[in-house]
Simulated assay, not measured.
Amino acid sequence: MTFALAVALAGCASLEEREIPIEQRIAAALPAVTVQAQGETAPVGTTNADAADDPAIWRNPANPAASLIVGTDKKAGLYVYGLNGQVRDFRDAGRVNNVDLKDGVTIAGAPAIVVAASDRNDRARAKIALFRLDPITAKLTPLGEVDGGSGEAYGICLSKFGGGLHAFVVLKDGTINQVSLDLSGATPTGRTVRTMKLNTQAEGCAVDDRSGRLYVAEEDVGLWRFDAAPGGSTTPVKIAAADGKAIVADAEGVAIAPIGEKAGYVLVSSQGDNAYTVYRLADESYVGRFRIVAGPFGATEETDGVDLALGDFGPGYPGGLFVVQDGDNEGKAQNFKLVAWDEIKAALNLRD
């Protein structure tokens, strides 16, 4: 059997899996421990639609409780939320799908927080929409757009590995363009330094800047790793399959929990059974799975994007913050749920 045929058959199997009732998918998957959300954001403005998609977390080191969350409404633009879930800002940016941010970036000679969103307003030509996030006012200021390549923009993640700022733009067809960003001038510019490829639809991605590893979720296939260095190999290494056990298709959002110099975890949204799967970064071994079940702020279903940031986020999240998109917000427009990393660690019996 050829590799292309194998991929095609895997895709067909995943389509069949999605016709299986959710109760059967959950029963067939590996067991998952449970946690509860400790907070949630206000719903996005687009109602009666699959609209909220991907979050990015900024931690305020001086005042952790004043940290911020940037989230996409993929039909309308970008929201900025406080940890209390209230809207601090909204930027009408049209169809922006995924979002990431980096602190300590130099913009026109001054340190700043840069926010990058995958702009799919033109489905034939991907763009990277760039913004500056003001940590005091929580306002987003547009910086401009950079070309992301031919095709529909889907996922995006930022990296400072090896110096400079790079954006990895995941196109809907599985193409991944690595774009070197230059924010030193009046308007941003970018240069595609290399292209990688997965065979089918992909979206979620995250970079471990310590090791220079890029993790990408191919929705019907599983989780992959690439070398994130501009001159590195473009050959992917498969970490885990969307086999209906550890990951139930779709494989969606990806997040990194870096601990120390080399340790930590990579998390992926197992959308097909409303769960989240955890692997060790050191040896890429399977750790376990968890679900966010009904509590004061409701359960999560059909999660697309996720983000995780370790460190103190105030009394509710002293060890870190996990934020996920909720695809079924109990009759309201979609939103994002907030979970304490300490609770996830305890449920999975993780030892740093």
Rank of each mutant, 00 (worst) to 15 (best):
A263T: 02
L198N: 02
E252A: 11
A255F: 05
A242E: 02
A249I: 01
V237Y: 07
D250F: 14
A202Y: 03
V216L: 00
V193R: 13
K262E: 12
A206F: 04
S211D: 00
D250S: 12
G232E: 10
E203P: 00
V237M: 13
T235L: 10
Y265R: 10
P236W: 03
K197S: 06
A246L: 10
S233T: 13
K197I: 02
V248Q: 08
V193H: 11
T200I: 13
L198V: 04
A257H: 07
T200F: 12
Y265F: 11
A263L: 12
P236R: 02
P236K: 03
A246S: 15
A251P: 13
E252C: 07
D220H: 11
G232I: 05
F226P: 07
I256L: 11
A229Y: 09
V193L: 14
R225G: 07
K197W: 03
C205S: 10
V248G: 06
A206C: 01
L223P: 15
V254W: 04
I259S: 15
A202F: 02
K238D: 03
K245P: 00
E219H: 09
G212T: 11
V237C: 08
S233E: 11
K245M: 06
V254A: 05
G231M: 01
V221H: 08
P258Y: 10
D227P: 01
K262W: 10
I256T: 01
I239M: 10
E252D: 15
S211Y: 01
T195R: 15
A251D: 12
D209E: 12
A255Q: 10
V248R: 06
D220Y: 14
Y215T: 06
G222S: 02
T192G: 03
A263M: 09
